[in-house]
Write a protein that binds this DNA or RNA. Structure first.
Lengths: 239, 239
DNA sequence: TGCCATTTGTTCGTATGTATT
DNA sequence: AAATACATACGAACAAATGGC
């Protein structure tokens, strides 16, 4: 009766609304008083306080007794440019930050219908699946799942494990250059394992980018499913 | 990490994980038994049952006594192609669906620093701000906020109110054609007002696209902040 | 100085919802 | 099905800090 039954608590929803108000600029520097927000949101003042506490824990606001609660400003997002020649490390380096990558896991799988279509290969073809984590200055930014034809790139897993870079790993397999054909974007909630790897709150959001990379002759090399931490990044597409 | 103190209930998190597993295809047809999932997620079977009930209420799965729980399939997303000549109505028509648009609200505002930089105009310049809702076959897909220089497009609000199309509204103001320069993508939770307009659950997700459109001489025409319903759409960028 | 309104911080109590056993 | 433990939410006070008058 009290909860609408959607599994999200009231203080959480209040926190999200305040966060959104800060994000879109409708609250610039100081929040309304707790009592005012309590009335406006139709909740108890305790509930507002808990929401503020959550935002303060994220460093988004700072409460000062007797004065008010002030916006300290959202953390700036890393700008990640996506285009035909997207390279994670170049992107991060261009923002004067140090890129990193490491192997989380890998296995051999058969191509399902969707991936086979994207790779332009027969369904069931043997693939390497690589789970990787990518960061800037040690802050995790994205988790990616990549699929490679196993026959064409037999050493890809070891190469990536050693270099931490897909580009380097492909170079060792004889791929001098590759291009991105298209990128498809959706948004999802974090899965629990991704939350662990990204060192993020379990209810965080990710931008999911599904992409296909092709070699210079247009043959598909890899299928990617990258989950970008939504609060730490912004994807930019130039047209 | 998993403590029940982050504002999301356990059954909700379990439901989200099952939903994600269905979404990325790792669960194709039938869910594991409740007891198996309970152990896998580290929760009680009651909690799994509640999660399944929530998914069943959304029409995502169907539980059959004595047989199991089966995936009925997620609703297909509308594919929305973003490029230099993105037009909402053309995009929707290409999927054999009927586009719609209507004015939600409008007002006059002064350009803040960020928008002034994007529009390449002095800060404080008078702008029209337009809130609009866009749908396909009556299903709301996106809410957009647009800023236009008021002096250059004095009739833009009325034009959009009459036509429901930005392209048409600009045409009446003498803009025969325009191009998109860049698009920046982030993900957020729905604000309460956007949830109302999109007829969506209050805890839904949106893809937020910030873009600048320029005329054929390269002069900025409008700044856009579009919130796409994340479960109903997928954004595609061809490179 | 003092007074007072405003605002955040704290402590009771009570009721309801959630999750497990 | 019932009992238990814990988290959430509300209500009413009071304390402490701030700033204007």
């Amino acid at each position: 009766m009290d909860e609408p039954g959607d599994g999200v608590t009231r203080w959480r929803r209040v926190a999200d609304q305040i966060r959104a108000a800060i994000g879109d600029g409708s609250v610039a520097d100081r929040l309304p008083a707790e009592g005012v927000m309590a009335e406006r949101f139709g909740v108890n003042r305790h509930t507002v306080r808990r929401a503020i506490a959550a935002l303060a824990a994220d460093g988004l606001v700072r409460a000062e007794r007797g004065r008010g609660t002030f916006v300290t400003g959202p953390a700036p997002r890393l700008v990640y440019e996506v285009g035909p020649r997207t390279r994670f490390s170049e992107n991060v380096l261009s923002q004067a930050r140090r890129p990193g990558g490491r192997l989380i896991g890998s296995d051999r799988v058969g191509a399902d219908a969707e991936i086979a279509a994207l790779l332009n290969c027969p369904s069931g073809l043997e693939l390497f699946r690589i789970e990787s984590l990518h960061d800037a200055d040690g802050l995790p930014l994205s988790v990616a799942t990549s699929w490679f034809p196993a026959a064409r790139f037999p050493g890809i897993v070891g190469n990536f494990a050693e270099t931490g870079s897909i580009t380097e790993a492909l170079l060792r397999e004889g791929v001098a250059d590759y291009r991105r054909r298209e990128t498809r974007i959706t948004a999802e909630r974090l899965s629990s394992s991704d939350a662990t790897h990204l060192a993020a709150a379990p209810d965080g959001l990710v931008l999911v980018a599904r992409a296909v990379d092709v070699d210079l002759r247009g043959r598909p090399i890899q299928v990617l499913r990258t989950r970008f931490h939504a609060e730490r990044m912004e994807l930019v597409f130039r047209h």
